[in-house]
Design a protein around this nucleic acid. Structure first.
Lengths: 159, 159
DNA sequence: CCTTGACCTTCCCATGATGGGAAGGATCAT
DNA sequence: ATGATCCTTCCCATCATGGGAAGGTCAAGG
């Protein structure tokens, strides 16, 4: 079958199938004389595998490992489990980060009247004007402050 | 002060300050004769505002609105609150999506022995081989399946 | 046989926010 | 004057994905 059929059946777009081939996640396919890519049911099976792994948030790099383990009859399930656990850890880290943001914002929004007056604790907090409502700070994690790497300027005193 | 100082004091990298200027999030600064950007304490204040908003996960586009509201004395706090609530909603949507992935994976990992044997429910699930463990599916949302848009091929029967 | 339309090919560009790094000019302290 | 440290602009890379153009292919119908 051609790439369109394979895309339809696997749920992976033709664009992405070509991309996966270009980065080596899947091997280069057989081509017709005219240069059309040709896929088998087995190829579609592999593509479905890849799509499900993507749906679970695995990166393309991780999927490369998973695919090769999947096709390796002598694999050890501990290898697969390690990848899965690592990914779960990463997902939970992201969840915690997002939740921290959401919590902070919810506290701020609770204290914002949300009417036609200009007073707004949300903007006050963003502005760092501590002279007003700072209740949210008692939560200990206002401003989730994603690790943006250390600043290491050595500016001394000019200007 | 120069851009390095402004970056250090605001916590926004010099790279990002230039980027924010290029996309119009902040206005073009005054320059010295030599072309160096010059920043005031007020500018640093604005940059801090932006950094805090970024730390809360607001997009640059949203921040643009927040900054203009912040600087608008006649603003209505309801506008700010609406943006904040919308963002909270978006954060919670992402959290739910990630949590769904993590839950599914945890179920699968629980049933994977993780030893030297090749049997692996995780791979089996990704492969769609339903003849084994399908307990995770009873959760109703195995495979978060991000909406990938409908396929609308009209291929009829060739191949 | 030729047209039409749906398909395929490759190539380039865009996303969003960020960093890396090169080439070259400016400033500053010694 | 020299070297260190700044600054400038410009290009490239990330990650997974889609859009779209220009052009080739194929099957069906006139």
């Amino acid at each position: 079958m051609n790439i369109g059929q394979a895309a339809e059946r696997s749920g992976v777009s033709a664009k992405m199938i070509r991309y996966y081939e270009s980065i080596g996640l899947i091997p280069k396919t057989v081509r017709t004389e005219a240069g059309y890519r040709v896929y088998s049911d087995t190829d579609v099976h592999t593509l479905k595998f890849i799509r499900r792994a993507r749906d679970l948030g695995f990166s393309v790099e991780q999927i490369g490992v998973l695919v090769s383990l999947w096709q390796d009859r002598g694999r050890e399930s501990t290898d697969v489990k390690r990848i899965a656990l690592g990914h779960i850890h990463e997902l939970e880290r992201k969840i915690a980060e997002l939740r921290s943001m959401a919590e902070t914002l919810k506290h701020l929004a609770q204290h914002c009247h949300g009417d036609s007056r200009p007073e707004c604790p949300i903007l006050d907090e963003l502005a760092g004007e501590d002279h007003l409502h700072n209740c949210a700070k008692r939560d200990g994690k206002i401003l989730a402050s994603a690790p943006r790497g250390p600043r290491k300027n050595k500016v001394t005193s000019h200007s």
